[in-house]
């Protein structure tokens, strides 16, 4: 809790900046008026219909991806794991491309059911392949990672073929795959995605103790009364809910699920409940800061939040890897 308070303050600053800053310059007083239902109609529309939904979406998406990263890293016992490792992102991507090429879907709200279905299908496929490839009834983390890599490669190839055949689809898809909050209007998308993200966050919090035990290995886990297969399926379900909800809100954002858990682990250590809590808060804050930065860098135009996250995330992740490797074993 003591560590959570500064994190929440950072998140609050990010949220305030996200509401204050945009391509249409509004004074803080005007924004405050708009938030309280006063002011001119243009300011009310900018703040309530654009900036606030965008802030909520960034908050949900960032928190979901960071928590999904923690769950993935816990289950695979690999700190370089991210939500894309188990076929979730690849499944979402291929489903969204099919939605574009076959059904002509072009809006974030339209991508939602496809992103969820694809995420779930990718996850199930990896689980089935992992279990089939394992000699045991429950696939080991290493088998799951290998199955995830194979299935992701396969789905990635399918996505690539579809996009190569159709450059118009590529044009629509690139906004989704880069990750952007600019296309959000109102709360339609957020309202659909939020229940999934909240369910995933609750499931992850309830799963924290199990993640601590999973880290000790399957045999110890079994000895402590845990059922490894059930635990993994719960974890996969959690990741699917979180990633499906996150990509629906803001597209496919890189690095949040990788960088944030590793950075937070330096503060909280390996115990999962505080790690999950602070990752959620700082994942949301990082996404909002990246979005605000994207609005400022090429003002009055915008850089998509996914581009800014990649620019920030790459160097930060390298620094984290170097720092981690230098620490004594």
């Amino acid at each position: 809790m003591r560590r959570l308070v500064p994190g929440v303050l950072v998140l609050a600053v990010a949220a305030v900046l996200s509401v204050l800053i945009g391509s249409r310059t509004l004074s803080p007083a005007t924004v405050l008026d708009a938030l309280t239902g006063g002011g001119d109609a243009e300011a009310v529309a900018v703040v309530l219909e654009y900036r606030l939904p965008r802030t909520v979406a960034g908050l949900l998406g960032g928190a979901a991806l960071a928590v999904a990263g923690v769950v993935m890293q816990g289950h695979t016992r690999n700190r370089l794991a991210d939500p894309g490792l188990l076929g979730v992102s690849a499944g979402s991507a291929v489903a969204v491309v099919l939605a574009i090429t076959v059904f002509g879907v072009a809006t974030p709200a339209g991508f939602l059911p496809f992103a969820f279905t694809g995420a779930a299908a990718g996850c199930v496929l990896v689980t089935v392949v992992g279990m089939a490839a394992s000699r045991r009834r429950d696939a080991s983390p290493a088998t799951l990672v290998l199955a995830g890599a194979a299935v992701s490669a396969l789905l990635g190839a399918a996505t690539g073929v579809l996009l190569l055949l159709d450059s118009a689809a590529l044009s629509t898809y690139r906004f989704w795959t880069v990750g952007s909050l600019a296309a959000l209007r109102g709360y339609d998308t957020v309202a659909v995605a939020a229940p999934f993200v909240l369910a995933g966050l609750i499931l992850a919090a309830g799963h924290a103790r199990a993640l601590d035990v999973v880290g000790l290995g399957d045999d110890v886990s079994r000895g402590l009364g845990r059922h490894p297969l059930r635990t993994r399926l719960t974890g996969l379900c959690t990741v699917t809910l979180l990633v499906g909800g996150a990509v629906a809100c803001c597209g496919s954002l890189a690095f949040v699920g990788l960088v944030v858990p590793n950075a937070v682990r330096l503060v909280t250590g390996g115990t999962h409940l505080p790690l999950l809590g602070l990752s959620a808060v700082l994942g949301a804050a990082l996404t909002l800061f990246a979005d605000v930065t994207g609005r400022l860098l090429v003002h009055p135009a915008e850089l998509p939040v996914g581009v800014v996250l990649s620019l920030i995330g790459g160097p930060v992740f390298i620094a984290l890897v170097i720092r981690t490797n230098r620490r004594p074993a």
């Binding site: 945009g22 654009y50 002509g104």
Partner: peptide, 24 residues
């Protein structure tokens, strides 16, 4: 940008709007 819509076209008394899809 979307936030600049009103500022950009406030003076226009008539609009030809190109929206390719029904969703747009």
């Amino acid at each position: 940008s979307p936030e600049q819509t009103l500022e950009a076209y406030r003076d226009a008394g008539a609009l030809l709007v190109m929206a390719d899809t029904d969703d747009e």
